[in-house]
Design a protein around this nucleic acid. Structure first.
Length: 549
DNA sequence: TCGGAAAGCGCC
DNA sequence: AAAGGGCGCTTTCCGA
């Protein structure tokens, strides 16, 4: 059962659809009636069809209404517009229209969390839904694409739910952590005491009393005047230099980053009532990974994770998928030897035990090099051995790289396609320098497409995993019969590419862990069927995030 | 004065 | 000669 929601000015329309798109019933509503309508219909388990999940769902959640499933038409449209397997569809060949507009930004401080604009008017969702169904059914891989759209849509629900719930954040502990590292909070515009002290050491050691360490240009000039040959102000370059100014300078830069990105000002903007409410952007990255729009949820530094503290009587279950991308590559390429190495809880150790390489770091850098296209350092040295041990997997990523170099489009396992390549950027009149540049650009694009197929498929696995986790957690909390709100049950509060945090009553932690593991296995089956690849999780039950790992 | 690019670094 | 993928955020830099 599907119910499409749309808005025309102040009027809302709900249309119940037969599976073939025929209209069964129609309701005319207003904003005040929407919440009650959805609440009444939800026990029938409709799939809500709407333009953008965040605009419709956030107000519903705020009113205490949680839904089971939806179709996010705009996210789906974007996938189908670009997918190689739907290139001939009416959707993909028609001119760009309103459905090609970007998802409305959820930007803004969480003060405005419940003061969002109401859902905006848009083109007819029923017609768009039919167009999308036709594109999927006419594609070369309808089953996979349908799964991708379902996973993307449940991801959109989860993103809104996590923003709504927020991640428990203890402002006092955050302030303590900052004070331990930086000194007490300085006046606006002033440097914290610890940074000021380090800066004095740097200036002294360089004999540069006016040095401005925050300007890379000034910093490099100052270093050079002191006889230090540095071509940039990057930490990795400075680390190689023997000079008394370097250690305090590196420490200064580290603290400066913390102070500006996740310091007191950040907390004032993003943490309210003991919760950090980041804005997630499903599908915000070309590969299908999520992005964040404000708050920096995907870059939360380890220094402040100790401020993520569970509520009294509650705890966190932190789970990350171990070596997700190598496992995904083993499954999608069908590399049996690599899959065998993945039978181990620690796949890199499994690669050592299989005799592919000698040490765990060699396995790790070798694999990352294979997936990223690295040719230097340890990953470059390991390349021949990885190729010998896992020829099928390596051929898979090499093919993706060569396709990208030729300007071709590549696709993930479920059918998300890469952006169009550059094609031949030169002709017979090109100079040697232009030819070199062109070949370099092609190789660079090849590294992108090589990584795209793996990173994008890993994102698909993660979305299937989370969708399954979400469903299981809801039932753990009593399912539809229970009256408890989303945040009164075990619920997802954080997601970071291959890692989730569940906030749960402590008594349910063991069941949550089991649900996470079952969901990981389910995601593997959903994507890859009976492929003999295991998706191992590392799980920790902790009261604060810094205790995980 | 403003806005975009670049630099640098945090996460995976 | 160049030689590792994807992002977001903050500050500085620089030109319109």
């Amino acid at each position: 059962m599907h119910v499409a929601l749309s808005r025309s000015g102040p009027a809302l329309t709900a249309v119940e659809l037969e599976d073939d798109g025929r209209e069964l019933r129609r309701w005319e509503l207003d904003d005040g009636g929407l919440t009650e309508f959805v609440r009444e219909q939800e026990p029938r388990h409709p799939r809500w069809v709407w333009n953008d999940t965040s605009t419709w769902y956030l107000p519903l959640l705020a009113a205490g209404v949680r839904i089971e499933r939806c179709v996010d038409l705009r996210l789906s449209h974007r996938i189908l517009r670009n997918a190689a397997s739907t290139a001939g569809s009416e959707l993909a060949t028609s001119p760009r229209d309103g459905w090609d507009r970007p998802t409305p930004a959820g930007r803004g401080a969480s003060d405005a969390l419940f003061e969002l604009e109401p859902p905006s008017a848009d083109d007819n969702p029923v017609a768009e839904w039919m167009r999308q169904r036709a594109a999927v059914e006419g594609s070369t891989q309808p089953g996979r694409l349908a799964l991708l759209l379902a996973a993307e849509s449940v991801g959109a629900l989860i993103a809104v739910e996590m923003r709504f719930a927020g991640i428990p954040w203890n402002p006092e502990r955050h302030d303590e952590l900052l004070t331990e590292l930086l000194g007490s909070r300085p006046a606006p515009g002033a440097r914290p005491a610890r940074m000021e002290a380090l800066l004095a050491q740097v200036r002294e050691a360089l004999d540069e009393p006016e040095l401005n360490p925050d300007s890379p240009v000034e910093l490099v000039k100052g270093l050079q005047r002191a006889g230090i040959r540095a071509s940039s102000a990057r930490s990795w370059e400075l680390k190689r230099i023997q000079h008394p100014a370097i250690a305090p300078l590196l420490e200064y830069k580290k603290l400066s980053r913390l102070h500006t990105a996740n310091g007191w000002r950040w907390a004032e903007e993003w943490v309210h009532d003991g919760r950090f409410h980041p804005v997630y952007v499903p599908g915000g990255v070309v590969t299908g990974r999520w992005a964040a729009d404000g708050g920096g949820a995907l870059q939360l530094p380890s220094q402040v994770r100790g401020a993520v503290i569970a509520d009294p009587g509650w705890t966190f279950v932190v789970a990350d998928a171990s070596q997700l991308e190598p496992r995904v590559l083993a499954a999608m390429s069908g590399d049996a030897a690599m899959a065998r190495a993945g039978q181990a809880q620690d796949m890199y150790q499994g690669m050592v035990d299989a005799g592919a390489v000698e040490t765990r770091p060699q396995a790790k850098y070798g694999m990352l090099g294979a997936i990223y296209g690295g040719t230097t350092g340890e990953s470059g040295r390991m390349r021949p051995r990885i190729e010998r041990a896992f020829p099928v997997a390596m051929a898979y990523v090499e093919n993706a790289a060569r396709a990208g170099e030729r300007g071709e489009v590549v696709s993930t396992w479920l059918g998300r396609s890469s952006p169009p390549g550059h094609g031949d950027a030169y002709d017979e009149t090109a100079s040697d320098a232009q030819l070199r540049q062109s070949r370099s650009d092609a190789r660079s694009w090849g590294r992108f497409t090589r990584n795209f197929v793996v990173q994008g498929t890993a994102a698909e696995w993660a979305m299937c995993w989370m969708g399954s986790v979400r469903r299981r957690l809801w039932h753990l909390g009593g399912g539809d019969e229970a009256d408890a709100a989303l945040t009164a049950r075990p619920h997802l509060v954080f997601f970071l590419h291959d890692e989730v945090i569940v906030h749960t009553p402590a008594a349910l932690a063991a069941e949550v862990e089991a649900a996470l593991r079952e969901a990981a296995a389910e995601a593997g089956r959903l994507l890859f069927g009976a492929a003999p690849v295991e998706f191992a999780l590392t799980v920790a039950v902790v009261d604060s995030y810094d205790q995980a790992k």
